Computed example of a mutant assay.
Amino acid sequence: MTETAAFQTNCRTCPLRQKTAFRPLEGKELDFISNFKSGELTVEAGATIVQEENKSPHLYTILEGWAFRHKTLNDGRRQVLNFALPGDLVGIQLAVLKDMQHSVTALTDTTLCVFQRDKVWSIFKDHPGLAFAMTWIAAREEQILDGHIISLGQRTALERLSYLILHLYDRAQDVGYASNQMLDAPFSQSHLSDALGITPVHTSRTLRKLFERELISWEKDRIRVLDRDALAKLASYEAVLDEPRPLI
């Protein structure tokens, strides 16, 4: 990991704030965020950003890159809980709990905005708008997990995979990582297997079914959605039309 104090992305001119997916901040709130940010951190693909049961002094917002949240059992079995993209707050559990209950690992080379954990209370104390924003972020993460739990409990493997691809496409589109039905796909079949709760062999067979039905194609780290309507019908997928979301 490499932390930088110079050449930081200025919060006022942050490229993420130019995207319609994110809610604009008032002047005083933006001033606070600029002071709250202590630096930027660059991590390589495969690096651990936060570790389960770790008491990290920092929270992070992803500025560039992909990461994934996961929890591992004692015997090494891993459940991918969710994927994280630019604008996502990493380590929010540390704002209220003593340590992290899951790990977050970079899927690609990733740039993070760094915030001091011990300053979080001042958000709730002095900036109710930002406090609501953090609560909103936590509620949205719960909403995303609701969809994944339904998949694990009720959808077939084919439906789960279809749902996950559309879910990732819509989130990636908000931050410029998907367009024209083409999705950047830095994750492996192993990541999908651990997210879907099925074996790698089952994942491979399920992908093949989507290929054969000409619903998707996957080449060179890119997934193309060939028939979104059919994929959405198969997955019982309904896009969540969020209002612009907070960016901290």
Rank of each mutant, 00 (worst) to 15 (best):
M1S: 08
M1A: 10
E3Q: 06
F7A: 03
F7R: 12
N10E: 15
N10S: 15
Q18R: 14
Q18H: 11
T20A: 10
R23F: 01
P24H: 03
K28Q: 10
L30V: 04
I33D: 11
S38F: 00
G39R: 08
G39P: 06
E40G: 06
I49T: 03
Q51C: 06
E53P: 07
K55C: 12
K55W: 05
S56E: 10
P57Y: 07
P57L: 07
L59N: 06
L59R: 07
I62L: 03
I62D: 03
E64K: 15
E64Y: 15
G65C: 04
A67R: 03
A67H: 11
R69L: 10
H70K: 11
T72R: 08
L73N: 11
D75S: 14
Q79N: 05
V80S: 07
F83V: 13
P86C: 11
G87L: 06
G87E: 11
G87K: 06
D88E: 13
V90C: 04
I92P: 04
Q93G: 11
L94W: 05
D99V: 03
M100T: 12
Q101G: 14
H102Y: 12
V104T: 12
V104M: 02
T105M: 08
A106N: 11
A106E: 03
L107V: 06
T110K: 10
T110N: 08
T111H: 14
L112D: 03
D118M: 02
W121N: 15
I123C: 10
D126T: 00
H127Y: 15
H127D: 02
H127P: 00
H127S: 02
P128V: 00
P128W: 00
L130I: 07
L130T: 10
A133V: 01
A133L: 01
M134R: 01
I137R: 04
A138C: 07
A139P: 02
R140M: 10
R140N: 13
E141V: 06
E142Q: 14
E142D: 07
E142V: 13
Q143V: 14
L145T: 13
D146C: 12
D146K: 12
G147L: 11
G147E: 12
G153L: 14
Q154S: 14
T156W: 05
T156H: 02
L161T: 00
L161V: 05
L161I: 06
S162C: 02
L164V: 08
I165E: 03
L166H: 04
H167M: 08
Q173W: 09
Q173M: 07
V175S: 08
G176H: 09
G176R: 07
Y177Q: 15
Y177D: 09
S179H: 07
S179P: 07
M182L: 15
A185P: 13
F187I: 07
H191M: 02
L192Y: 01
L192N: 08
L192A: 07
D194F: 04
D194R: 13
A195M: 13
A195S: 15
P200N: 09
P200S: 03
P200T: 04
H202Q: 10
L207R: 12
L207M: 15
F211L: 10
E212A: 14
R213D: 01
L215Q: 05
S217Q: 09
S217T: 13
R222S: 12
L226I: 10
L226F: 05
R228P: 03
R228L: 01
L234E: 05
A235G: 05
S236M: 08
E238P: 02
L241N: 04
D242Q: 00
E243Y: 01
P246V: 09
P246T: 05
L247S: 01
